[in-house]
């Protein structure tokens, strides 16, 4: 399990990083925490000519308050997310989901941006970004652009990042009002990826559900929103019966895979049960 030989660059700024990518030859991979990249290189499923290691790009690390939104640097590690006071205050759903990611060692190295750029539908953080209507700030040779999460995830392991582009930071709108959140993850052993998971954020108003945002992990080739359930919940009673009825529609519009852990119909069933549980908890029931 030794990767094929590769050239290595360690830039210290975003600008240098973009240059290193441009100079890196035919097949360049950027490396964040390396927790997904290095295993595939060791399995020789990827054999890049050059690896551009972002570990020293300090401007891509850390969390800042930008008024209506939090800005999370792509190189912020899972561990840093878990201990950050701003995220704890304004995006507790991200904390809940990040707590379920892998183990301590992986969380110490793996990054928020790396997890999103990797775009594994079984990864936990993409569905959260989608549910929170996060925006991706992307840098390229032509400057920066901002893409909503809904447009960022394109396919299995595929984002809208073009060759030569970097995800530099993620803008997460603060939740205003009376929100409750819950990340409901279903896996067989503690450190595994989700078989299915549901990220729910629910805003209550006068005993009703004013708004629900529900992200689904591993229910298709990209993270998805449970749109039918969201629609059914908008304005619904915050009651067990109303939530259960809405959750019955959680698998609509999904196309999950079949693998060792779950065949598609079972994944659909799990999506319904977990959505009911996540929304109930988020709604304070």
């Amino acid at each position: 399990m030794i990767p094929a030989a590769f050239a290595y660059a360690r830039p210290t700024t975003v600008e240098e990083a973009l240059q290193a990518i441009a100079d890196g030859g035919e097949d360049v991979k950027v490396m964040a925490g390396g927790q997904s990249l290095i295993p595939v290189m060791r399995l020789r499923m990827a054999a890049p000519e050059t690896v551009v290691d972002l570990v020293s790009v300090s401007e891509m690390r850390g969390v800042r308050d930008d008024g209506d939104a939090l800005v999370v640097g792509a190189m912020t590690t899972h561990h840093d997310v878990l201990v950050d006071p701003l995220i704890a205050e304004h995006a507790p759903l991200l904390v809940q989901a990040t707590e379920t990611v892998a183990d301590r060692q992986v969380r110490a190295r793996g990054t928020f941006g790396g997890a999103l750029a990797h775009a594994d539908p079984a990864g936990d953080l993409a569905a959260v970004a989608l549910a929170l209507d996060a925006e991706m700030v992307i840098a390229g040779s032509g400057g920066r652009r901002t893409v909503p999460a809904a447009d960022f995830f394109v396919d299995y392991l595929t984002t809208c990042l073009e060759e030569g582009e970097l995800l530099v930071e993620v803008r997460i709108p603060k939740l205003r009002g009376e929100w409750g959140v819950r990340y409901e993850k279903f896996n067989r052993v503690a450190q595994a990826w989700s078989i299915v998971a549901v990220a729910a954020a629910v805003r209550r108003e006068n005993g009703h559900i004013a708004e629900a945002r529900i992200g689904l992990t591993n229910m298709g080739s990209t993270p998805l929103r449970a749109q039918a359930t969201e629609a059914a919940l908008a304005g619904a009673d915050a009651s067990a019966a109303a939530i259960a009825a809405a959750a019955e529609r959680a698998a609509e519009g999904t196309s999950p895979t079949s693998d060792l852990n779950a065949q598609a119909d079972y994944r659909e069933h799990l999506a319904r049960v977990l959505t009911r549980r996540a929304v109930s908890a988020a709604a304070g029931l």
Binding site: M1, S36, P39, V40, L43, R44, M45, D120, P121, A122, Y156, L157, W193, T257, S258, D259, L260, N261, A262, Q263
Partner: peptide, 18 residues
């Protein structure tokens, strides 16, 4: 069980089967 591996690591089953 379905015989397909999960998608982690791009769904590699074994080094030799890729």
């Amino acid at each position: 069980r379905a015989a397909a591996g999960t998608t982690a690591y791009g769904g590699a089953s074994t080094e030799s089967t890729t």
